[in-house]
Amino acid sequence: AIERGSKVKILRKESYWYGDVGTVASIDKSGIIYPVIVRFNKVNYNGFSGSAGGLNTNNFAEHELEVV
């Protein structure tokens, strides 16, 4: 089962992080479509409006993740 702290591989082909491994930061139990927040070591794009980097978290559905 996917739980907080799990290392997961991203299976969503259109994702910037496809094939990468991230760490589960949290799981939303409220029934939303993409409840699993995954944190990565790298950012997906340069930040804007003065922020240092881009996003390094993204929401995924459990079926888009594979525990490694």
Rank of each mutant, 00 (worst) to 15 (best):
S6H: 07
F48Q: 15
I32G: 13
E62Q: 09
L11Q: 04
E64F: 03
E66Q: 12
V38I: 04
V36C: 03
N44K: 14
N59C: 15
S49L: 11
E66W: 07
V43Y: 15
S51L: 10
G22H: 02
R12Q: 04
N58K: 06
G54Y: 08
N58T: 10
E62R: 09
L55Y: 11
R39Q: 13
G22A: 03
E3T: 13
G22V: 04
W17D: 00
A61C: 07
G50A: 10
V21T: 09
W17S: 00
V8S: 00
I32L: 11
T23P: 02
L65C: 03
G47Q: 09
G19H: 05
T57G: 07
V24F: 03
G47P: 14
A61G: 07
F48D: 15
Y16Q: 09
N56A: 09
A1V: 13
N56F: 10
K29A: 07
E3G: 11
Y18G: 00
K7V: 11
S15H: 04
V43P: 15
H63K: 06
K9A: 03
S15P: 01
A52M: 13
Y45C: 15
L55I: 14
F60G: 00
D20R: 08
A61I: 02
E62C: 13
R4E: 13
A52N: 12
N46S: 09
I33Y: 09
S51A: 12
E62M: 14
S6K: 06
N44Q: 14
E14L: 06
A52S: 13
S26R: 11
I37M: 14
D28F: 04
G31L: 12
V36K: 00
L55A: 10
E14G: 11
I32Y: 08
S49Q: 11
V24D: 00
N58G: 15
V67H: 05
T57H: 12
E62V: 14
S15M: 03
E66L: 10
Y34D: 07
V38E: 00
F60C: 03
F60Q: 01
A52K: 08
L55M: 12
V8K: 01
I32H: 11
F60L: 02
N44P: 10
Y16C: 07
G54R: 05
T23W: 08
V36Y: 15
A1R: 13
Y18V: 03
E14N: 10
I10H: 02
N46G: 09
S15F: 02
R4F: 08
G50S: 11
V24T: 00
E66P: 02
E64H: 03
K42L: 08
G47A: 07
E62A: 11
A52W: 09
A61V: 04
F60A: 01
L65R: 01
G47M: 05
V68E: 03
A1S: 13
V8P: 02
K9V: 08
E62D: 07
K42Y: 06
T57N: 06
E3H: 12
E3Q: 13
V43T: 11
N56M: 09
G22E: 01
S26N: 09
G54F: 11
S49K: 06
A1L: 12
N44D: 15
G31V: 07
K42M: 05
L65N: 01
I27H: 03
I37P: 00
N56I: 08
N56R: 07
R4L: 14
T57V: 10
H63C: 12
V68F: 06
K42V: 09
S26K: 10
N58W: 14
V8H: 01
L11R: 03
Y34N: 11
G22M: 05
F48V: 14
N41G: 08
T57C: 15
S49P: 11
I33K: 13
K29C: 13
Y18W: 06
S26E: 14
G54C: 15
I33L: 13
Y34A: 07
N46Y: 05
N44Y: 15
G31I: 07
G47W: 07
V24C: 04
G53C: 15
L11D: 00
N59K: 08
G50V: 07
R12T: 03
R12D: 03
G5K: 02
G47V: 06
N59M: 08
Y16M: 06
V24R: 00
D20G: 06
S51P: 12
I37Y: 08
V38G: 00
G5D: 04
E3W: 08
E64A: 02
N59G: 12
R4C: 15
S49T: 12
S30D: 05
W17P: 00
I37E: 11
K29H: 14
D28H: 04
F40I: 03
S30K: 07
A25Q: 14
I27S: 00
K13Y: 07
K29W: 09
P35V: 12
D20S: 09
Y16V: 08
N41Y: 08
N46Q: 13
W17F: 06
W17A: 02
N58R: 06
K9D: 02
A61D: 05
Y16L: 06
